[in-house]
Simulated scan of single mutants.
Amino acid sequence: MEEHIIGAGMVSYPAGLQLRVHVYRNNNRPALALICADDFLPYLDLTANVPDQELAEDEVFIAAWNVPNDVLTALLESGWFVPARTIATGYTRGPVWKIQSADLLAWIADAREDALADMLQ
């Protein structure tokens, strides 16, 4: 996965953040996390798994309650995502974003292949 710094100079994390891609074990949906660009420590989980909701292969449910507004803005400005809709799940509502980046979709496909290989071992 290419190292791309998102939102350098943001108030909430001036060094910027990098996206890390995994998949949720129970349904193979994208599990996206942000790490600190300067020290590579975990920053936050960008997505939440909502197995009871229908999502397209190129959609993710954003844990917006957990993400500072300037980070959400920087992610949307990256061009990797576009808001698709809002859904209610459990005790909260949150945005569903459509993934626009072919690179990100390829990284997710790689993560799915890795997860499958791990399951077969």
Rank of each mutant, 00 (worst) to 15 (best):
M1P: 11
M1E: 13
E2I: 12
E3C: 04
E3M: 08
E3H: 15
I5C: 03
I6D: 06
M10T: 00
V11A: 13
S12C: 13
A15C: 06
L17S: 09
L17A: 15
L17F: 05
V21Y: 02
V23W: 11
Y24S: 10
Y24M: 08
Y24E: 10
R25P: 03
N27C: 09
R29Y: 03
R29F: 00
A33I: 00
L34Y: 01
I35D: 05
C36V: 03
A37M: 02
D38T: 00
D38H: 04
A48T: 10
N49V: 02
P51G: 05
D52L: 07
D52G: 02
E54V: 12
E54Y: 10
L55C: 10
A56Y: 12
E57L: 13
D58H: 15
I62K: 03
I62M: 10
N66E: 13
N66C: 08
V67F: 05
V67C: 10
V67I: 15
P68E: 12
P68I: 12
N69W: 06
N69F: 04
V71H: 01
L72D: 05
L72R: 14
T73P: 00
T73K: 14
A74F: 09
L75P: 03
L75D: 02
L76C: 09
L76R: 08
E77S: 04
S78C: 08
F81Q: 03
R85G: 05
R85V: 04
R85L: 01
T86F: 02
T89L: 06
T89S: 14
Y91L: 14
R93W: 11
R93Y: 07
G94R: 07
P95E: 13
V96N: 05
W97M: 13
W97N: 06
W97Y: 13
Q100W: 02
D103V: 07
L104Q: 11
L104T: 06
L105K: 14
A109M: 12
A111H: 05
A111E: 14
R112V: 13
R112N: 15
A115M: 08
L116W: 10
L116N: 14
M119Y: 07
L120P: 00
L120C: 05
L120K: 07
L120W: 09
Q121G: 10
